[in-house]
Nucleic acid binder design. Structure first.
Length: 670
RNA sequence: GCCCAAGUAGCUCAGUCGGCAGAGCAUCUCACUCGUAAUGAGAAGGUCAAGGGUUCGAUUCCCUUCUUGGGCUCCA
C-alpha cells in the first residue's frame, strides 16, 4: 500500500503507511508524544486518536498539557458523569454537558418525585455519582464513535426529550453534531449491561456528541472532583424547564487539580463578605432588608478616602459637582424612558399629591435637568457633571451577592455633554483619566471591551452617529495601547460603549469602568445647545462611571488586597503598644504626634501581653505596629513592626512619621 | 424570580433519634506589668431567624415567610 504524506505543524512532511491513525502518527514521532497524545487536529478539525489519516493531511498532535487537550479531558469526564447519573438514577435524562473553564457540567432531569415534579439531587448524591465514576474509569471503557441516521438516533434516544430536540436541530449544542441527516454518537460499553437500559440497542451509555474524546475512560481521566449541584434552565431560557446541573472540575494531572482546589480556598479566604465582617468594615443586617448594607466606622473611613480621592481627581479633571435628589416624580423617568424599559428593576412608587415618586435608579435624568435648566451655549461644552449619586434598583432576590450586587449603591457617575467635534478628544482624555485613577488604587493589568451596535431595528440613532462614535471609542483604545476585544452587537440600544476590566492580585478579572454613548436621552429629554452659527444643535451625551459603584469597587479592592489595604487607605495606619502601663503616657504622646500629621492611630493599653496585642494587630492587617518601652521613652523612639516586614528597634519618632507621610503621599498621588 | 442548601451567644461552630442549651474566641471584672503572633481566674451573654401547625411537651418534625450561600435568568 502506498505511504501517506502528512504535514506536521512545523511544516515538515512525514511518510507513514496507509491506515495510520492519529495515534499511530504520534507513536511514529516519539514515545513521549504518543503517551501525551489526547486527540489530533487533522486539517483544522479535532479527531480521535483512532481516526485514520488520508494522504496530504495536515496534522497536529494535541497533548494533555495543552488547552485543547485539557478541554477534551473535561469533555470526556462529563460523559462519564452522565453515564454514572443515568445508570444510578433510572428514568433520568440529560440535556447538554460541555467542558467549561476549570471543568465541566452536565444538565440532567430526574424522574418525577412524589409531588409530580422532577426530583432533584441532594449533595450526598454527588458522592455516589463520583464513586460510580471512579468505577467506570477503572473499567477502561472505550469511547466508541459512530454515525447514526436521524431516524435511527430518534429510536436510540426515544426516551430522552432534550436529545430529540437536539437531533431535530431545534437546539444548539456545541458538543453535538446534527449535520445533514447524520448524527455522531459516542458509546461507552460498560463491563456489565445496565439493569435498566436507557438507550435502545445499547447495554449502557451512549451520547450524541461531535467529539473527539480520549481513547478510553482510563486514559487521562481521574483528576476530577464534582463540585456542586445547581439549577439551570434548559437552553438558558427562564420560561423553559429547570434542569439539575452538576458542576465538576477536571485537570490533566493531580498536581493541577490540587492547585485549583488550593486557589479556590485562597479566593474563599479573601471573600469580601468574610473580610468585611472580620475587619468590622460593614454589615448587612437582616433588619435592613436584603441587598442593603450599613458601613461601620472602619469601612466608612476607607470609603471616605476613596470618595475624597475621587472628588479631588474629578475636580482637577474639569468636572463640575452637582447633587440630585434620591426620589423623583415618575414623569421624569417616563421622559427619560427608564419607566418604559426598566420599571421591573425599580423600587415601586410612593403616592404623593401630584403623582408617583420613585427612588432613582439612575442619575442621568437628574443631570439632564441641570443641563436643561437654562439654554446652553457651545462655549460651555464640554460640560462634565459629576455626582457620587446613590441609586436604588430592585435586583431580583436570587441575584444579590454581597457588595458585588446590591440594591442601594452609589455610583461615581458623570455625564459629559460635548459637540460632535469634541467627542474624539474627550474620549481619549477620558480613557487616560480612567486608567490613571484605577492605577492609583493598585491595579496595573487592564483590558477593555468595545461593544458595538445591536440589531439595528432595536436601536436608536443614525448610522453615521453609531459609526463615528464606535470609531472614536476604538481610536481611544488604540491610542492608549489598551488590549481590547470587540463585543459585536453588545452595545446598549442607545449607543456603543467601552468597558474597562482589571485583573486582581489573584488573577481574577473584574469589570469596573464604563464609557457609553447615549443617542437616546438627548432626544427624549430635548437636550440641545446654541452653536456658533446661532442654530440649535444636539450635542453628544456620554455616561461614564469609573468605580462603577463605590460599594462594588470597595468589595473588589478588599478582595484584591485580601483586606490589607495600602497604608494610605488603611482604617488604622499605626497601632501603638506600650510595653508596660507606665509607658502609656509616652504612647499617648506618640499618638498625638502622629494624629497631628494626619496619621490614623490608636493605642492598646498594656492589660494584655505584648505578644497577644501584636497578634491581634496583625489580624487586623494594620500597616504599622509601634511598640514603645523603656528605651523609647528615654530616646524618643519607637519600635516599628511593619506589615510584612522586619522589626526595627529604636527608630526616631520623627523619622518614622516622615516615612509614613512620604509613603501616603506617594501612594495617594500616583 | 427559579433550583438546591443553610440560619443555634458579637464571631467561628458543636448539640438535642422531641424532655431546662454547649465550647473556643470576642466582651466585662479582678489579678498579672510583661520588648515583638495567644497570662490566669471569674462573670455576663440565647424567644436556637420569624410566624403558624402537629404534640402532654418543638430549637429539633411539618408549613409559610425573611435572610444568607451556590447556580440559572437578569444586570439601564
Amino acid at each position: 500500500m502506498a505511504d501517506l504524506t502528512i504535514t506536521l505543524p512545523d511544516g515538515t512532511s512525514r511518510e507513514v503507511p496507509a491506515g495510520t491513525t492519529v495515534g499511530g502518527l504520534a507513536a511514529s514521532i516519539g514515545r513521549g508524544l504518543a503517551k501525551a497524545a489526547v486527540i489530533g487536529d487533522v486539517n483544522g478539525v479535532e479527531r480521535d486518536l483512532d481516526w485514520e489519516l488520508a494522504d496530504g493531511d495536515t496534522v497536529a498532535i494535541i497533548t494533555a498539557g495543552s488547552e485543547r487537550g485539557l478541554y477534551t479531558i473535561r469533555h470526556s469526564t462529563t460523559h462519564v458523569m452522565a453515564q454514572a447519573v443515568l445508570e444510578l438514577f433510572p428514568g433520568s435524562t440529560f440535556a447538554i454537558g460541555p467542558p467549561v473553564e476549570n471543568g465541566f457540567y452536565y444538565d440532567f432531569e430526574l424522574p418525577p418525585g412524589p409531588d409530580g415534579k422532577p426530583a432533584t439531587f441532594v449533595p450526598e448524591d454527588l458522592e455516589r455519582i463520583e464513586a460510580r465514576m471512579r468505577e467506570i474509569l477503572a473499567e477502561a471503557q472505550p469511547f466508541v464513535r459512530d454515525e447514526l441516521t436521524d431516524a435511527k438516533a430518534r429510536e436510540v434516544f426515544a426516551g430522552h426529550r432534550y436529545k430529540l430536540e437536539i437531533i431535530d436541530g431545534e437546539a444548539d449544542d456545541p458538543t453535538s453534531a446534527t449535520a445533514s441527516g447524520l448524527v455522531r454518537t459516542y458509546e461507552n460499553p460498560p463491563a456489565q449491561p445496565w439493569a435498566t437500559p436507557a438507550f435502545a440497542g445499547y447495554p449502557g451509555f451512549v451520547d450524541l456528541c461531535r467529539g473527539p474524546h480520549v481513547p478510553d475512560t482510563k486514559s487521562f481521566l481521574g483528576h476530577f472532583k464534582l463540585m456542586r449541584v445547581a439549577g439551570a434552565y434548559w437552553r438558558g431560557d427562564e420560561h423553559k424547564p429547570m434542569l439539575q446541573r452538576i458542576y465538576g472540575t477536571a485537570w490533566a494531572t493531580k498536581a493541577e487539580l490540587d492547585e485549583h482546589l488550593h486557589q479556590l480556598e485562597e479566593a474563599a479566604k479573601r471573600d469580601h463578605r468574610k473580610l468585611a465582617n472580620e475587619l468590622d468594615l460593614l454589615s448587612f443586617p437582616e433588619e435592613l432588608g436584603g441587598g442593603l448594607a450599613v458601613w461601620h466606622p472602619k469601612g466608612g473611613i476607607v470609603r471616605k478616602l476613596m470618595e475624597d480621592y475621587s472628588r479631588s481627581r474629578h475636580q482637577a479633571g474639569g468636572y463640575e459637582f452637582v447633587y440630585t435628589p434620591n426620589i423623583a416624580n415618575g414623569k421624569l423617568f417616563e421622559a427619560s424612558g427608564h419607566l418604559g424599559f426598566y420599571a421591573d428593576g425599580m423600587y415601586p412608587p410612593m403616592q404623593m399629591d401630584n403623582g408617583e415618586y420613585y427612588p432613582k435608579p439612575m442619575n442621568c435624568p437628574g443631570h439632564n435637568l441641570i443641563f436643561n435648566a437654562r439654554q446652553r451655549s457651545y462655549r460651555e461644552l464640554p460640560l462634565r457633571l459629576f455626582e457620587l449619586g446613590t441609586v436604588y434598583r430592585y435586583e431580583k432576590s436570587g441575584t444579590l451577592h454581597g457588595l458585588m450586587r446590591i440594591r442601594g449603591f452609589t455610583q461615581d457617575d458623570s455625564h459629559i455633554y460635548c459637540t460632535p467635534e469634541q467627542a474624539h478628544d474627550e474620549i481619549r482624555s477620558l480613557l487616560v483619566f480612567v486608567l490613571s485613577v484605577l492605577r492609583a488604587f493598585g491595579f496595573e493589568d487592564f483590558e477593555a471591551s468595545l461593544s458595538t451596535r445591536p440589531a439595528k431595528a432595536e436601536t436608536v440613532g443614525t448610522d453615521e452617529g453609531w459609526a463615528e462614535a464606535t470609531e472614536n471609542l476604538r481610536g481611544a483604545l488604540e491610542a492608549e495601547g489598551l488590549a481590547y476585544e470587540v463585543d459585536e452587537g453588545g452595545g446598549a440600544f442607545y449607543g456603543p460603549k467601552i468597558d474597562v476590566k482589571v485583573r486582581d492580585a489573584i488573577g481574577r478579572s473584574w469589570q469596573l469602568s464604563t464609557i457609553q454613548y447615549d443617542f437616546n436621552m438627548a432626544e427624549r429629554m430635548g437636550l440641545e445647545y446654541v452653536g456658533a452659527d446661532v442654530g440649535r444643535h444636539t450635542q453628544i451625551m456620554m455616561h461614564r462611571a469609573l468605580f462603577g459603584s463605590i460599594e462594588r469597587f470597595f468589595g473588589v479592592l478588599l478582595e484584591h488586597y485580601a483586606g490589607a489595604f495600602p497604608t494610605w487607605m488603611a482604617p488604622v495606619q499605626a497601632r501603638i503598644l506600650p510595653v508596660r502601663d507606665d509607658h502609656e503616657p509616652y504612647a499617648a504622646e506618640v499618638a498625638v504626634e502622629l494624629a497631628a500629621l494626619g496619621i490614623r492611630t490608636d493605642v492598646v493599653e498594656a492589660s494584655e501581653k505584648l505578644g497577644n496585642r501584636i497578634r491581634k494587630a496583625k489580624g487586623e492587617k494594620i500597616p504599622y505596629v509601634l511598640v514603645v518601652g523603656d528605651d523609647d521613652v528615654a530616646d524618643r523612639t519607637v519600635g516599628v513592626n511593619p506589615r510584612g516586614g522586619e522589626v526595627e528597634r529604636g527608630v526616631g519618632l520623627d523619622e518614622f512619621t516622615q516615612r509614613v507621610v512620604d509613603e501616603v503621599d506617594d501612594q495617594a498621588h500616583v
